[in-house]
Write a protein that binds this DNA or RNA. Structure first.
Lengths: 256, 256
DNA sequence: CGCGGTATTGAATCAAGTCAAACTTCGTGG
DNA sequence: CCACGAAGTTTGACTTGATTCAATACCGCG
């Protein structure tokens, strides 16, 4: 098992396209919580709905529970001192939230639902008890932490050493994989987030994001209209994601 | 206790300047492992020296242990597919390494000593046992994970929404705090890393880093010669770190 | 139908990257 | 001990990718 390989997951086994998408380079985001699914004594987890636009929690508020996203798409962001927010992640199915609770720290981020979503809640008070009862919960947790750190590293890589086009291409491939793992099509999906939010996440301005979408479309890599997006040329996208030379491979197609 | 506040630490109590430096904005990097220091049954931790330039572990190798840095300064980096490395962090005293072991994953990063260093080693096989024996170890671990995530968030912020000068200023302030917490002077210290490594860490080129050092020096904020650095005007640096407008406050001093 | 929020597009600017050269420091070996 | 070479650093000139400012277009909704 190497870095790219994912741990076997009970959560994912019902998803048909998962295996295909697993290969889409950085698939690290799938965090499995088999112990939750198997469930038995894990009955402590209670579902909770979050309507679009509402917050699961806000930065600074006391952290009281762990959450696992069951479905939907959220946004976790760091509210900047200047009013501007910095988008850190778009948590989706299987992602864990509220880890600050374990450390006994107040919430460090805002978490808002980008669409109607549902999370499973485990009050932190019940955590130790649940751990001793549910075999594997703690291991799942460790795995999650590892995955979260790896995910952030990926993100750092995007922000640190990549061109704008690369970042966006990777982002799309990444999303494709995650949506696929959630049972949606890996080729055509619906961006839950605005250009501004994508920009913040990728360290770009919303205008740059918009421009790049247009350029990708002109190059025949994608078809995009507002938040509807279709990936036409996965390989081309991968090339754009990998290639430091934007004028190379996928640009040649421009002439055709 | 809020986000900025640090947990009480046995590791730090002998350090005189610590309290002063604690205030230096994002002091989150101090991860305390009181349970190690208190030690008693935690005798499982064995020290290990790492000479400058040698690796503690390499990406891809099986992860066998947890490590806590006792002294020295290391570099953890993601070896890029293209040969270029991406510097993720400069672990120092109190920082935990090898968390991949908990998740049962192979090492994801290279970790190399930038100076002669020492780490404490806990073989992963002994981990559960140590947890049950040493009260608080698991909590320390959770705290560490929380801190690590918060630290990465900080880093993301730097890379995402900040100008080059801001990033470097924050980096210096950050380093100052960490060195201080390790018993060194917060005002004058020795950079353990090259310009290229700083650049990689901050998402800049080495030339940009060099230029910015020169500029800070011209503006009277610092004095720098090779890797010897002295912070002359902490407040000015903080202003540079905070201010999105590089031409503002601290630039006025240029005229004087 | 008109309005507000979101997205696209264009033109001008600027920060940072790239390429290249000179200089310093340091370790090595003649 | 000094000369040499390698590695790391500084600085300059130039290029360019991305931001900024601003105008226009579009979609959804009351």
């Amino acid at each position: 098992m190497n870095v790219q390989t994912l741990p076997a997951s009970g959560l994912r086994q019902d998803v048909s396209a998962a295996n295909v998408q697993r290969a889409v380079q950085d698939g690290c985001q799938q965090i499995a919580f088999p112990s939750i699914v198997v469930g038995d004594a894990g009955a402590q987890w209670t579902p909770r709905r979050i309507r679009r636009g509402t917050y699961l929690y806000r930065a600074g508020s006391p952290s009281t529970a762990l959450f696992v996203v069951r479905f939907g798409c959220l946004k976790s962001s760091l509210p900047g001192d200047d009013g501007e927010e910095l988008v850190l992640d778009f948590p989706m199915r299987g992602d864990l939230l509220g880890a600050d609770a374990l450390a006994g720290q107040p919430c460090a981020t805002d978490v808002q639902a980008l669409e109607d979503s549902e999370v499973l809640v485990l009050p932190i008070a019940d955590f130790e008890g649940a751990c001793s009862r549910v075999q594997g919960l703690r291991n799942d947790l460790y795995r999650h932490f590892g995955a979260a750190l790896r995910r952030e590293r990926e993100h750092l890589m995007r922000l640190g050493g990549m061109r704008a086009a690369q970042r966006l291409a990777r982002f799309l491939i990444d999303l494709s994989g995650r949506f696929a793992a959630n049972g949606y099509s890996p080729r055509a999906f619906n961006l839950r987030m605005s250009r501004a939010e994508i920009g913040s996440y990728l360290g770009l301005t919303l205008e740059s994001v918009s421009r790049l979408f247009s350029r990708f479309q002109d190059d025949g890599l994608i078809k995009v209209h507002l938040r509807e997006i279709e990936l036409l040329d996965l390989n081309g996208l991968r090339a754009a994601a990998a290639c430091a030379e934007p004028a190379a491979a996928w640009h040649a197609a421009e002439a055709a």
